[in-house]
Nucleic acid binder design. Structure first.
Length: 872
RNA sequence: GGGUCCGUGGUCUAGUUGGUUAUGACGCGGCCCUUACAAGGCCGAGAUCGGUGGUUCGACUCCGCCCGGACCCA
């Protein structure tokens, strides 16, 4: 009867659909002016060659949203980009080819980097396809391609024209290993064990002074010293001068409130530059610049005999020399926070260099960020804090190769700097001259192209502009950015800054922030801990659909989630269940089922359709709020318990033996509920739902279908259906308790309802396998009140401070007497503190228990409002 | 040190504006091959909701403090 295989083979089906979808247009963006756009600003990942489980979580979220919005009828653009430029690739290429980047031409080096990047992208794309992500591959982009970096340069040019971009000499964070400037966001503070040295500076015409420092190697860069103005130890000493040990320069003591009197001796040396504080003081007090650290992290000629030593060596050599010459008073271990390069962990230096900067306009950034809807909303706070804490402008120039060139030239004759115009990008200033021709300042013709390149974040922070088609199309905010909370200070921050600067708009309407993925044991995933899981392993063990479901149910978006194998197990079981439902249903459905005219729905049909409509609505609400966990849970619950446990069992009689009209009504309702379920599940489990869809009388792909909208039904019939389902479930549970087969035949079943309702017993009788009689009132069996069930929400507000006493009286009263009072008076009365209080009937219910004392053998069951008598 | 989030059965997790017996999953125990389903079904046990004060008739939910954890910043 059915061509549905007995079991579902995910490995085969997932492979098949993956290929099918690639050849189809189901995921393509139509740019249809009639439908609302839903554009996702997919954050382009760095092509590491490995899409790890943390990436996968974010892509799952985007894919759930993309698939949901397609069902909702939106014109979805889910592009995929690649953030290609950057140091790790340069290092990898140097390693693989055993060269230094300066050994070959910039062109050659770039070419190798591109080649390497392409192979890395291929591997990650494969994983994305395995996991069933529905990007529109016609909209794939690479930040290293001309068409992309043209836009990067264009945005740079526009920002230069509006004075967001400027060139200046200013202290910057410098990584001596990468030999480039880096931005504040690329510096990570690490707690390290260091040594605190106590060093004596001899006074020049005044007493000596002792300072404490962790960086004796910076003594040659010492230009001043400072104490807290309120520090009594140094009263009257401001303005004293001292000679820097070993290096001989004379420095003056100043007072500044920023000095921490608790640290060391309370006196600190100011070097150019030990840290950001030094840079501030240097500027504030107009101190001399003694640059002693070279770009590659060695001491220069100002260090005299120590010239050429790497920083770490210089530290110990100079400390030794201080000790030998009697300047070192003490040395003790200390905890210190060291700023390190986030790419290579090398401690950073602060050097003053000519660099390109982007102005950080805190107010504009926050104004913009506030207009974005953050999910969860507290993620905005992260951005706010970071933004408010920004001290320096964003340094965007990098002394590297594989990146977007800064489109500028310097006149070799007069030093005038010429920035490209929008018309001449993309341009590589190292190989091309500016369009302006001769220097507008001096008329010279000798241009030196800028060899500095841009920070990679300059590329990735225009992704919303790029995917939205800027500048051909005026920019309108896209609908969604999804990303991890660990990169709010970079990706989100820079994108907001740049979009506001270039367009005056917010980049996205919604920012959905995902948490981190931890291992099964609750710890960060790491290979050494043995809790590392690669998405492919999960697919191999179970299926991509199961993996995707586990990601959705791991926790609500925004929280960190633990990867749980048991969640995958549970998802697999659900899929088995779903498959069996489909297999059973498909056998009863035919091509004309969906269009059954004027289906004569019985009560249970009305009930399942109403339930289904309710679920469709609440799941849509969840999806709109990106509550994927809640959405999937609701659908799974509906499918398993309402549809399979209750509804399917209730209509089996009609499906197998019903007359055509009533059978077709059941078939139609079954089809409606099942196809709605598949559509609601399809964002989470795209493969099995597509496979199931193909076995039902449906058209096309489930992913091209629309969000379910079941027909409106008679509400009273639906309520009756709910009672029937409740009764059927109760009888089924009882049979199971009794160890009876579910189809065990019963003598008869009597259903007692308080008010007579024309319950449709047709399906119920078949399901419980007994004739069913509906009665009004209470059954003629001995029911003994045994307890009281208080409705606190009714009773509490009425009695307020007396509520506790009333509850006590109700609970301590004899239930039998209470029942009698209720029957005669319609309420209960107590005397409390001399007052008579009346407890209305709606404030409590008496719990009754059936006491079988003689008479007919009968079992009494409670099913919601109904009392069910079962005669065996 | 500042900030954000969090602490619910053995494990993970839900809990909407405070209101009956606190959700589900995995695991565990028992029963059941019932015309979709044993790679399954049904049932059961298992939680003083981190601790402690407070607000309230009533607190998992609101507030204070403490303990513990994660992340961000300094």
């Amino acid at each position: 009867m059915s061509d549905v295989p007995d079991s579902y083979d995910p490995e085969e089906a997932e492979q098949r659909w993956r290929e099918e979808w690639l050849d189809s247009e189901v995921y393509s963006y139509d740019d249809d002016p009639e439908r609302p756009d839903y554009i996702i600003d997919t954050p382009p990942p760095y092509p590491t060659g490995n899409l790890h489980i943390g990436n996968a979580l974010g892509w799952c979220y985007m894919d759930y949203a993309a698939r949901y919005h397609r069902l909702k009828g939106d014109d979805v653009l889910f592009p995929q980009g690649w953030d290609c430029h950057g140091l790790p690739t340069e290092v990898k290429v140097e390693e693989n080819r055993d060269i230094h980047r300066t050994d070959v031409s910039r062109e050659q080096f770039r070419e190798w980097c591109v080649e390497h990047t392409e192979s890395q992208i291929g591997a990650m794309k494969e994983t994305m396809l395995t996991l069933g992500f529905s990007q529109d591959w016609n909209h794939e982009f690479r930040t290293m391609n001309d068409d992309y970096w043209e836009e990067t340069q264009r945005s740079f040019v526009e920002m230069a024209e509006s004075d967001y971009v400027y060139q200046d000499e200013h202290p910057v964070n410098w990584c001596p290993r990468c030999e480039t400037a880096i931005a504040d966001a690329e510096v990570e503070n690490e707690d390290r064990e260091g040594t605190l040295y106590y060093i004596t500076f001899e006074g020049v015409g005044n007493d000596d002074i002792e300072i404490a420092t962790t960086r004796p190697e910076l003594l040659p860069a010492c230009v001043s010293m400072a104490v807290d103005p309120d520090d009594e130890r140094y009263e009257d000493r401001i303005g004293d001068t001292f000679e820097v040990p070993l290096f001989g320069q004379e420095v003056e003591l100043i007072a500044d409130e920023e000095v921490d009197g608790e640290f060391g001796t309370g006196a600190v040396m100011i070097c150019t530059f030990g840290d950001k504080q030094d840079a501030d003081w240097w500027a504030e007090y107009d101190l001399e610049l003694r640059a002693v650290v070279t770009e590659d992290g060695h001491l220069d000629e100002l260090a005299g005999e120590f010239e050429g030593l790497p920083i770490e060596e210089a530290k110990t050599e100079i400390a030794d020399a201080l000790e030998r010459q009697g300047y070192l008073e003490d040395a003790e271990p200390t905890e210190q926070s060291v700023g390190c390069c986030w790419r290579c962990d090398t401690p950073i230096e602060i050097l003053s260099k000519e660099q390109w900067f982007v102005k950080v306009d805190q107010e504009e950034i926050l104004d913009t960020a506030q207009k974005i809807e953050w999910f969860p909303d507290h993620m905005y706070t992260r951005l706010e804090e970071w933004t408010e804490g920004m001290e320096w402008d964003w340094v965007i120039s990098r002394q590297r190769v594989f990146a977007t060139p800064i489109p500028a030239w310097e006149c070799a004759d007069c030093g005038h700097v010429e920035t490209a115009t929008g018309a001449e990008v993309p341009v590589d200033p190292t190989t091309e001259d500016p369009a302006v021709g001769s220097c507008p300042e001096c008329g010279g013709e000798n241009w030196a192209g800028e060899t500095d390149v841009m920070d990679t974040w300059m590329d990735s922070s225009i992704s919303p502009l790029y995917v939205a088609g800027w500048p051909e199309e005026a920019f309108e905010p896209v609908q969604l950015r999804e990303q991890g909370h660990d990169i709010i200070r970079t990706w989100a921050f820079y994108t907001i800054l740049r979009t506001a600067a270039v367009t005056g708009e917010i980049p996205w309407e919604d920012a959905l922030i995902n948490g981190m993925v931890f291992g099964d044991d609750g710890n960060k995933m790491s290979k050494s801990r043995g809790n590392f899981v690669q998405p492919e392993e999960v697919v191999e063990e179970h299926s991509a659909d199961a993996f995707r479901q586990a990601m959705a149910l791991g926790g609500q978006p925004g929280t960190d989630i633990q990867f749980q194998w048991k969640e995958v197990t549970s998802a697999s079981r659900f899929q088995t269940k779903l498959w069996n439902i489909v297999k059973f249903s498909a056998g009863h459905l035919e091509g004309s089922t969906p269009e059954t005219a004027d289906a004569a729905y019985r009560d249970v049909d009305a009930w399942i359709l109403e339930e289904c409509a309710g679920v469709a609505e609440s799941v849509a609400d969840d999806m709109d709020e990106y509550r994927f966990d809640s959405a999937l849970r609701a659908v799974r619950d509906f499918v398993w318990h309402d549809l399979a446990d209750d509804y399917l069992e209730l209509i089996k009689g009609r499906l197998y033996e019903g007359r055509p009209g009533e059978r077709r009504a059941a078939e139609n309702a079954l089809y409606t509920a099942l196809s709605a379920s598949l559509r609601m599940l399809s964002p989470f489990a795209p493969f099995i739902t597509e496979e199931a869809w193909s076995h039902l009388p449906t058209e096309g792909s489930v992913h091209g279908a629309s969000w379910p909208d079941p027909p409106a039904v008679d509400g009273e019939a639906a309520a009756r259906g709910a009672t029937i389902a409740d009764i059927a479930a109760t009888v089924r549970g009882w049979k199971s308790d009794e160890g009876k087969p579910l189809n065990a035949e019963l003598d008869r079943v009597e259903v007692y309802l308080e008010e007579a309702v024309p319950l449709d017993t047709y399906d119920l009788a078949d399901t419980v396998n007994a004739p069913v009689y509906i009665e009004e009132g209470t059954p003629n069996v001995e029911l003994v009140p045994v307890g009281v069930d208080i409705d606190h929400s009714e009773l509490g507000p009425v009695f307020r401070e007396k509520a506790g006493a009333v509850v006590d009286r109700l609970e301590s009263a004899d239930p039998v007497e209470l029942q009698a009072e209720l029957d005669t008076a319609g309420h209960a009365e107590f005397e409390i503190d001399g007052d008579v209080v009346t407890v209305e009937a709606d404030m409590f219910e008496l719990e009754a228990e059936q006491r079988s004392e003689g008479g007919e053998e009968v079992v009494v069951l409670e099913a919601g409002d109904a009392t069910v008598l079962v005669f065996e």
